[in-house]
Design a protein around this nucleic acid. Sequence first.
RNA 1: GCAGGUGUUGUGUAGCCUGGUAGCACAAAGGCCUUCCAAGCCUUUAGCCCGGGUUCAAAUCCCGGCACCUGCACCA
Length: 547
Amino acid sequence: MNDPDQEEISKRRGIYLPSFLIYGGVSGLYDYGPYGSRIKDNVIRIWKDMMLSEGNVAEYDGTSLTQISVLKASGHYDRFFDYSTECENCHTKFRVDDLLEKRNIEVRLDQDYLTRALKEDNIKCDKCGGELGEVKIHKLMFQVEQGQNSDPLFLRPETAQGIFVNFKEYYRFFREKLPFAIIQVGRGYRNEISPRKALYRLREFNMMECESFFDPENERWVNEPPDSFKVKMAANTGEEFFISPREAYERQIVKSQPLAYFIGKSFQFYVRIGLDPDRIRYRQHKKDELSHYSSDTWDAEALTSTGWIEITGIAHRGTYDLSRHIETSGKDLYAQRVIPSRKVMEEVVEIDYGLIKKKFVNDAPAVISALKNNQDFVTIKGEKIKLAEFLIKSHVEKIIDRENFIPTVIEPSFGLDRIIYSLFDQNFTTRAESGFNVLRIPSEISPYEAVVLPLMPNDSLDKVAREVFSQLLAKGGRVLYDESGSIGKRYARYDEVGIVYGITIDYDTLKDNTVTLRHRDTREQIRIPIKEIMNYVRSSPWNGKKN
RNA sequence: GCAGGUGUUGUGUAGCCUGGUAGCACAAAGGCCUUCCAAGCCUUUAGCCCGGGUUCAAAUCCCGGCACCUGCACCA
């Protein structure tokens, strides 16, 4: 039997669908519908809870529109343009900067220059020797006009930069103690050349990013990498391991302790939201795969029906971003560390204004400005005057017990849409006996905790069911009500969108105030009193169970 | 972005070649019936991706655009 078609179900059942569909849609843009939005929010909520529970993590929420200077500093602006050319004979595409670099020809990001360079150096197709076509530009960031004469703004290609530029706010918030981390959930925008596979490659996408900051002399997270479980790891040496994150660090397969920690943390997160632990692996980037800012990156990948796909990148960004922002903005984004205190004598030079006024009443300003210009002499009324005598030099004892440093950054960056895509891919199953679809996601990810169903829409069953529905809503339950269609049809309807519990109001309910509780995965039923529904649904041994 | 293919009610599709009232199944809504896993019967809603052209007449033929699929390239 074929796997259920995720996109078909998602569209039909309001999980996600292409944006602006009535006008034909836009490539790379997708919306979440009534069920999908709730699933997405649940994933975000759990992620935030897990990150914030570390104790030294705080949240940031920045704008999507980003100032050009930020992106110039971060290095994204230089990669704003992708210059490509195509062989007119065999239609192979090349990046023009690659072609020039290979031949040791200077690369300038300028269309005219690159076109000329290709012609003048008579560069041909690397594959077949054919003529190369014109140089085409592809903009990789979305540009937005602002006002009339102002600089344009850009839609952020990652949420991280907003965090880096606000580093000092958080440094103070955490009482100037490292390590700490800042998390942000938000949208990023990349003008992908060809978006594909529904949620897999989008032009506007949801990211959950965490920037953790360290003293490079003590690059350790507050907690140790877990060793209670093992994960699959593929190092860029070609070696593969199945070991705990702690062991991976101890054996230096993962060189950085926090990086190993976040590998463990992300794994716990995936398992909690319902990804299959056997279908998750961590793969280290090869040297030529690394981003411009990273020295070491491990991707978390999920195995889906289309192969392993990247769902999270855990990158060691070093001091790259903060140093770039220090350099470009001229602002202090340093952290400080306490060092053994030592005394230094510092020479302090002050101008003796009293003496100057006394000696030169009207010419005092000329003398003062000469001093401020660091001149040694000044000529007043034809007389050359030595200025040294108007300076008071003293020695002050100073205690130095701090020094500046640029923190290093380790960034786990979770691709929310890809995680949801993998979650559906791994958890949509078809019942062998009936052919109906079941979305087996954990209850806390489910769009609703339960659905209230009168066995029949009459005999006052519907009336009682509505009462039960209201009671559950009043208790804060995430519940739905449905009386339309046969009971079996309704069970199937909610199986398909992942709701774990069916609460059926039947004829026994009228007698003894109990209901039938039916489980999505096992289809088993039990009776429990109305009063206990909420409690049971939230704490039941069935919760999250799979079979 | 290139090459090839595809686009028909909410979903899956027939019809296109050979132009002439757009059909089926499921889903959904209303009704009858019905005491736990998509039952049955009646009724209803709802569609030719968008724009232009050819033609008396276009879902059908032609052109352009958009979207999707596969491959290539791209993925900072």
